[in-house]
Design a protein around this nucleic acid. Sequence first.
RNA 1: GGCCCCAUCAUCUAAUGGUUAGGAUUCCAGAUUUUCAUUCUGGCCAUACGAGUUCGAAUCUCGUUGGGGUCACCA
Length: 460
Amino acid sequence: MIVTRFAPSPTGYLHIGGLRTALLSYLWARRNNGKFLLRIEDTDFSRNDEAAALAIVEAFKWVGLEHDGTIEYQSSRLAIYQEYAQKLLDSGKAYKCYMSREELDALREEQSARKERPKYDNRYRDFTGTPPEGREAVIRIKAPLEGSITVHDGVKGDVVFNVADILDDFIIARADGTPTYNFVVAVDDALMGVTDVIRGDDHLSNTPKQIVVYEALGFPIPRFFHVPMIHNHEGKKLSKRDGATDVMMYKEMGYAPEALLNFLVRLGWSHGDQEIFSMAEMLELFDPNDINRSASVYNVEKLDWLNAHYIKNTPNDKLCELLEFHGVMLVSHDKREILLDALKERSKTLVEMAAQINEILVRPAAFDEAALKKGYKEESKAILMSFAEALKNSAELHLPSDYHHVMESIVAQLEIGFGKIGQPLRIALMGKLSGPGLDTVMAIIGVDETLARIEALLKH
RNA sequence: GGCCCCAUCAUCUAAUGGUUAGGAUUCCAGAUUUUCAUUCUGGCCAUACGAGUUCGAAUCUCGUUGGGGUCACCA
């Protein structure tokens, strides 16, 4: 059985990069009828945040990811870590170190001055004497002193680390007894039965340390997949100052979760020339062994294109539901189908769509100056008046085509081009020179409102 | 700086050692549209550099350059 996990630290929200690794872990687990677990890495109490886990679950819910089992909080597993640290102590694979922070700092400074790599000097590794008075010990694990550690990575291949270059007897429990990251990650992943660790490649250099823990405890080592980072336009790791990194902001901005997931799954992974992936297709096709080795740049244009695609292909009922979040209530609107059909083709986001709906439904408060200059001439008034007359004399105007016929008749009657009536009418209806088809707009707002808007322009 | 990773159009990516290096997004042009958008058609644009292996290299090897990550009693 394949067991994957998502293990964020509680930062208060779900990061877009986090969502990607969560998605990939989720896909791989589900594809194999395995389990996808969620664990909150909150061993650092100084930044613990209860609401953070909730924020992650909320974001998961929005995009449709679901974890299995209960959420594990590392802060509530302290006894477990203590137990395993004690096991290592008992078996002589770890030891207490009484070195003070000041001594450690001094050692590091000294080493740096000598242009050496700062590392612990193993002074308490084989210590048997009496410990110094009044000093709380940290627990250090005995790391190998020589040789190499190879990470077998499904994305990067075999990565070999020379022990002398990167390791020392690192701390697994602080002086206050709380465990440290590399220790708890390994313990938890092992205890939770995680078989496939899919995470950002910023963790690659931590992996040898975790392997040391796995081996000391006799746990089987999982498969690793270190997926490349998402970069910003400067080529750096995506961070808060790049704008939208909180997943829930995408909801605010009017993105469909399907579009966001589709976008993320294509970053560093592909299946031939296919661009559009439904959740079902991702589930069927995704394999972490196919992930690219190189980092990718986060570009919004493609996300916008995908989002537009999903909006176009969303049924109107569903669209109606989604638009409520953006303040648009259409359930009882009798021309709702015409309205949505017209606008879903022209919106990149739901926010845009909501704005466009309001532009149609709400009478223009003002007329765009440039538009008036360009499209509202002296002759326009007479044309608009004729059109208004024709509307009043027409019965049973419902569909866009009904209005279109009226426009055609006026154009023929006055022997003018469509633009002669189109431009002023557009200004009257929308207050500007762009927008959906005029016949559609009129069908949506109805004859009375159309006449009122023409009237308003003529009085302007 | 040490260690590790990475390198195909601007961007996301495809290409059993043999393709006119393909697709998508962006951009540009044309068509459709009363307008804008959509849609359709077309166009511009890439194997970082240098050696080597090979009949043949984007692909394998080495080097150079460039970029990124990581080096805590943070996670």
